[in-house]
Design a protein around this nucleic acid. Structure first.
Length: 127
RNA sequence: UAAGACGGCCGGACAGCCGCGCCAUGGCUUUGACCAUGGUGAGGAAAGUCCGGGCAUCAGGGGAACAAGGCACCGGAUAACGUCCGGCUGGGGCAACCCAAGGGAAAGUGCCACAGAAAAUAACCGCCCGUCUAAACGGCAGGUAAGGUUGAAAAGGCGAGGUAAGAGCUCACCGCGGUGGUGGCAACAUCAUCGGUCAAGGUAAACCCUGCCUGAUGCAAGACCAAGUUAGGGGCAUCAAGGUGUAUUUUUUUUAAGAUACAAACCGGAUGACAUAAGGCGUUCUCCCCUUACUCCAGAGGUGGGUCGCAUUGAGCUUCGAUAGCAAUAUCAAGCCAAGAUGAAUGGCUGUCGGUUUGAGCUUGCUCAAAUUACAGAACCCGGCUUAUAGGCUGUCUUAUUUG
RNA sequence: GGAGAGGUGGCAGAGCGGUUUAAUGCAGCGGUCUUGAAAACCGUCGUGGGCGCGAGCCCACCCAGAGUUCGAAUCUCUGCCUCUCCG
């Protein structure tokens, strides 16, 4: 599974519409990509709001999320899904192993939601 | 040894594994949001955007007046500055040293609440003389600014003389001002001499006056490339002389048709060359010079782009090198080349050694354990200022105490 | 990244350097009216500290900290926060 990074505002807005899971350390949003994907690829974007602190704090938050995602996403990511990770106030202070575990929980949870929804959609289309 | 004053510097180090941006080279049997190798990769404040520049666009430049804004003891440094250095004056500190938007209130205007007699040519109480009366502490007419309460502030201070009572009315000293000498580039200091209504408070971070400085907009400036959309209308000038109009004339019985000339009202056309005109960036005027696809009003598209600007040569940085200077700094010499992203690159984990704090142990400066290791992230680039900052290193000086 | 505007009780929002500003409105609380409510009318109403048995009185606070002034919500400087604009 390859991981590509989201850079455009449009992608972030799209991801925010559908699914959302909150765990200690990170808020995860996700959506199925609209354009057809042939390869084994998922997309990830990182965000930190101004509420968290000054510039160096926000940068650090995104770096930690990036480091954690590098371990988790290649295994847990689903094909053709856009994930967006939003940093929280304690993202910088948490133990890294704990943060990784929590992120994995969030991803598996959100994948489950997507599968349920998609199953229904397919059923309706068949009818 | 203790307390303090003023500078200068540092802002953890090393190793391993997994990753990131940019650049160079190479690879390809997926020419890629690819792979490999090598190089390189945040700060003293990168911050605030408070000043000063470079650079870019408004075509370029000179002059005058006004407006707006800024600066303000004196001299120097600098590309420039509101910065820096040296000095002066005033204030604070035993001292080292520190602080000051520090020009003008005898150019003018405004404001000074409450209180108080009075907030600026005054006179409430008081003091004193004269006079009315038998007399007065009462009335009248004066003199006076010593004393009074108030207030942030009451038209020099203090002492003596003087006087009816008083008053720079007179005098000494201090203070203030003018003139002259001396020292200094100057601010200013100092000495001499003259001045008594020497002078009429405060406020200019109130208006203002004086002197000096400033064109506007900021890299989202701006240049180029690619793709795509759109609807025109009004006004001005010139040209031609089309239609219309008027006049003359030819043919003709007339209608009518043709030709020539004129006009510029209407309709339509072309052009925006010269000239004129307009514009040229705070306003007005002016001198060059320049521009004009005339000028004004509408309308459509656009927040999916890309490349350059942009990052090795500059007001460049470093030097406990030299020379000049008290210094800021300048000149010369030597050395150095040092991030370039654009949802934005430096992270995660581990180990060792440091620093700090706390606790324990004793060999009293070591060992062990735990915690902690600031402020903070380049976005066109420089020079400053301001603000944030764990902890540490280092130099010079002052005061006090002790010892020699 | 750059360029501006603002910050006053719980909320909105006035405020010439001066007696006591905290105007005014909304909200809140109490009352009148009503069977009850709304509307209307009347009164009251910021926070913190100190003193007082109590009624009440005094001091400080207009985002924060300095400065100018006899005296700052107001004038000047520095910082913090909020909002707007740029192609």
């Amino acid at each position: 599974m390859k991981v590509f990074i989201l850079k455009k505002r449009k992608d972030f807005v799209e991801a925010a519409k559908e699914f959302k899971v909150v765990v200690n350390g990170v808020v995860l949003q996700a959506a199925l990509s609209l354009s057809p994907i042939c390869d084994d690829i998922c997309f990830v974007g990182y965000t930190a709001t101004k509420k968290l602190g000054k510039a160096h704090v926000r940068n650090r938050t995104k770096r930690r999320l990036r480091a954690a995602a590098a371990l988790v996403m290649p295994k847990a990511g689903m094909k053709g899904v856009k994930y967006v990770m939003i940093g929280r106030h304690n993202t910088t202070s948490l133990n890294f192993a704990y943060l990784t575990r929590k992120l994995l929980e969030a991803v598996t949870e959100i994948n489950k939601q997507i599968c349920e929804k998609e199953g229904k959609d397919v059923a309706l289309a068949d009818d």
